[in-house]
C-alpha cells in the first residue's frame, strides 16, 4: 500500500485510471437510464414509481460504500500516517453526503405515493439521516482547525466512531419493524427481483461507483495541489522572515 503513499505516483496512476472510469460512468449510466426508464416494466403493485428504485437504491449503496471507504482511509491515516489517506477521507466526504442526500430525497418522493408519507421516524430512515449528519460533521471538522493535520486527525476519529452506524443501517430492516422493505438484492438465496429490474439497478450501481472513483480522484488531485501551494507559501514566508 505504501507504493501509493507517494503523491507523484498517485497522480500518475490517477491520470491513467480517470479517463477509463469517466468513460465507463457515461456508458453505464446511459445504459442504466435506458433499461430503467424505457426497457423495464412497471411494477404490478407500485406502477411506474418502481423506477425511482434505480436512483434511490444505488445512491443508498453509495452512501454506505463511500462511508466505508472514508473509515478505511481514516484508519490507515491514524495507524500508518499514510500521507494520502487523510486526503482521500477528506475528498470522499462531500461525495458521500451528496449520494446520501439523493437517497433521502428520492426515498421521500417514493414514500409519498406508496406509503402515503414523505417521512417516518423509523429505524432505516433515521439511521440514514444520521449518516448524512456524520458526513456533514466530517466536512465541518476537517476544516475547523488552522493546522490541517489536526483537522484531519479529529475528522478521522469521527469517521471511525461513526462507522458503527453502517451495520445499523444495513440490518435496521431486519432488527426493527419498519416501513422500509427488507433487502431484496444482497440476500441469502440470491436476489428476489426480476432480471429486467435487476439489470438497470446493477448498471446504475456500477455507474455510480465509477462516478465516485472519478470525482474522488479529481478531488484528491486538488488536495495534493493545495498541499503544494501551502508548502510554497510557507517557504516564501520563511524566506522573507530570514532575509
Amino acid at each position: 500500500m505504501h507504493r501509493f503513499a507517494n503523491p507523484a505516483r498517485f497522480l500518475r496512476l490517477a491520470a491513467v485510471v480517470m479517463p477509463w472510469t469517466a468513460g465507463a460512468t457515461v456508458l453505464l449510466i446511459a445504459a442504466g437510464l435506458f433499461f430503467g426508464l424505457v426497457a423495464s416494466p412497471a411494477d404490478y403493485q407500485q406502477g411506474d414509481t418502481v423506477r425511482i428504485m434505480y436512483v434511490h437504491v444505488p445512491s443508498a449503496w453509495m452512501g454506505l460504500f463511500v462511508y466505508t471507504t472514508m473509515a478505511v482511509a481514516s484508519a490507515t491515516a491514524l495507524i500508518w500516517k499514510h500521507p494520502l489517506a487523510d486526503l482521500v477521507a477528506k475528498s470522499a466526504a462531500p461525495i458521500g453526503a451528496g449520494f446520501t442526500l439523493v437517497c433521502l430525497v428520492t426515498g421521500a418522493l417514493w414514500g409519498k405515493p406508496m406509503w402515503g408519507t414523505w417521512w417516518a421516524w423509523d429505524a432505516r430512515l433515521t439511521s440514514m439521516l444520521i449518516l448524512f449528519f456524520l458526513y456533514l460533521g466530517h466536512m465541518a471538522l476537517v476544516d475547523a482547525f488552522d493546522d490541517p493535520t489536526r483537522g484531519a486527525r479529529a475528522a478521522a476519529i469521527l469517521a471511525l466512531a461513526g462507522f458503527v452506524n453502517v451495520p445499523i443501517i444495513k440490518f435496521s430492516v431486519d432488527w426493527w419493524n419498519t416501513l422500509h422493505q427488507p433487502a431484496s438484492v444482497v440476500k441469502m438465496g440470491g436476489p428476489a427481483i426480476d432480471p429486467s429490474m435487476l439489470a438497470p439497478l446493477l448498471l446504475m450501481g456500477v455507474g455510480f461507483t465509477t462516478f465516485f472513483v472519478t470525482v474522488l480522484f479529481l478531488r484528491v488531485r486538488a488536495e495534493i495541489l493545495a498541499a503544494k501551494i501551502r508548502a510554497i507559501r510557507l517557504t516564501q514566508v520563511r524566506g522573507q522572515g530570514v532575509g
Binding site: 414509481t49 461525495i95 449520494f99 439523493v102 430525497v105 405515493p113
Partner: peptide, 20 residues
C-alpha cells in the same frame, strides 16, 4: 406518477452534476 418519478431523477442529476 410523473410528479414523483421525474423529480427523483432530476435531484439525482443535479446533485451528481454539482459534485462534478
Amino acid at each position: 406518477y410523473a410528479g414523483y418519478v421525474w423529480p427523483a431523477y432530476a435531484v439525482t442529476a443535479v446533485v451528481m452534476g454539482a459534485l462534478l
